[in-house]
């Protein structure tokens, strides 16, 4: 198992960096090219959600990402330190209830729609989003 850990301060500009790192490692780990867009978007959503939450609750604290290849899976865990009472979007869209800062519930809905395997663990001490995709068994991209 190889693990890359990344921490970044809660600034929107760093979300792009996190996406680029995750996509690069996914490619190197052997995730299929056709899935890389999904990795990029899902990791971006998780990091955006964390940045927004930190900016409200704890702007000075860093956000943490762990990326690992684990027995044929590429796994990403995004952890924040902001108290969370969020719920997954499980009802039809009602335009009247949406605002242009509605990213929280929809971000997780997007992740759930993209990642092959998702676990969202909210808690008063922060949220952890773990997601994974199939990768090559030996953790190496095809030559």
């Amino acid at each position: 198992m190889a693990t890359v850990e990344l921490t970044f301060s809660a600034l929107p500009a760093h979300v792009r960096t996190a996406r680029l790192v995750a996509t690069a490692i996914a490619r190197r780990t052997g995730v299929e090219e056709s899935l890389l867009d999904e990795v990029r978007l899902a990791v971006g959503e998780a990091c955006s959600r964390a940045v927004e939450a930190h900016r409200v609750h704890c702007p000075g604290e860093p956000i943490r990402i762990e990326l690992r290849d684990d027995s044929g899976r590429f796994e990403v865990t995004v952890s924040d330190l902001a108290p969370s009472d969020e719920h997954e979007q499980d009802h039809p869209v009602d335009l009247g209830t949406l605002s242009d800062s509605f990213t929280q519930g929809f971000g997780i809905a997007v992740i759930a729609g993209l990642a092959d395997d998702v676990e969202v663990v909210p808690s008063p001490k922060g949220m952890r989003i773990r997601m994974s995709w199939p990768a090559s068994a030996n953790g190496q991209a095809p030559a």
């Binding site: 978007l41 971006g44 959503e45 949406l98 605002s99 242009d100 509605f102």
Partner: peptide, 16 residues
Amino acid sequence: DFLDSTGLGVLVGGLK
């Protein structure tokens, strides 16, 4: 090249 839920939110805000 890339659109996330923040962008969706902006489009929804514009629509409203």
